[in-house]
């Protein structure tokens, strides 16, 4: 298979050392040897074969490649894979359990929060970061938190509804959480 992961692997004739990267990816310890210029998005997609993380614009605009890095949303096309060494990374594959969708995923399903689905993984992780900080978001809070993620189907209305749906479901499941948030 030809992939970017292999393309940027070190060649014999140059002295750029490869680095060993260990990350906790969706709760699981994973390791890889990478050249420093490999991007986190490439490591996730080509290296670890988790293709739920999408690369859209590849220029830090669209947010399709958003993953959680130690709980904060980051654009994985704008971080080096080596920077993730020793850190926790959550991708869309880490949201659901074997038997159950995450409430955010359920919300996207129930409220028709996706059309082509390309932006969806990034939207859901940005939404997760919002709800982790603020379990009681207003519609404005949701729109603001998702303003770094573009949907080219322009389906924003239902994406916002989906996140508000998930917020309510999470509050119902854990009424105590609605009191505060993490701060």
């Amino acid at each position: 298979m030809t992939s970017l992961f292999e393309e940027v692997a070190p060649s014999e004739d140059d002295n750029i050392p490869v680095r060993r990267v260990e990350v906790r990816l969706n709760g699981e310890r994973r390791a890889a040897k990478v050249e420093p210029r490999l991007l986190l998005a490439h490591l996730i997609r080509q290296g670890f074969q988790l293709t739920g993380t999408h690369t859209g614009c590849d220029t830090t605009n669209c947010g399709a490649c958003t993953v959680l890095f130690d709980g904060e949303p980051v654009k994985s096309c704008t971080m080096l894979a080596v920077q993730a060494h020793g850190h926790e990374v959550t991708t869309v594959e880490g949201l659901a359990t074997a038997s159950e969708l995450h409430p955010i995923q359920e919300g996207f399903k129930d409220e028709h929060g996706l059309q082509c689905g390309f932006c969806t993984p990034g939207m859901m992780l940005a939404a997760k970061a919002l709800l982790d900080h603020n379990p009681n978001p207003t519609e404005d809070d949701v729109r603001w938190a998702l303003s770094g993620n573009l949907c080219r189907c322009t389906g924003y209305q239902n994406i916002v509804k989906a996140v508000l749906w998930a917020a309510e479901k999470l509050r119902d499941a854990d009424p105590g959480a609605a009191e505060g948030g993490d701060e």
Partner: peptide
């Protein structure tokens, strides 16, 4: 500044 996701880094 920028957008919410860029602001985390």
């Amino acid at each position: 500044v920028a957008d919410p996701i860029v602001r985390t880094r």
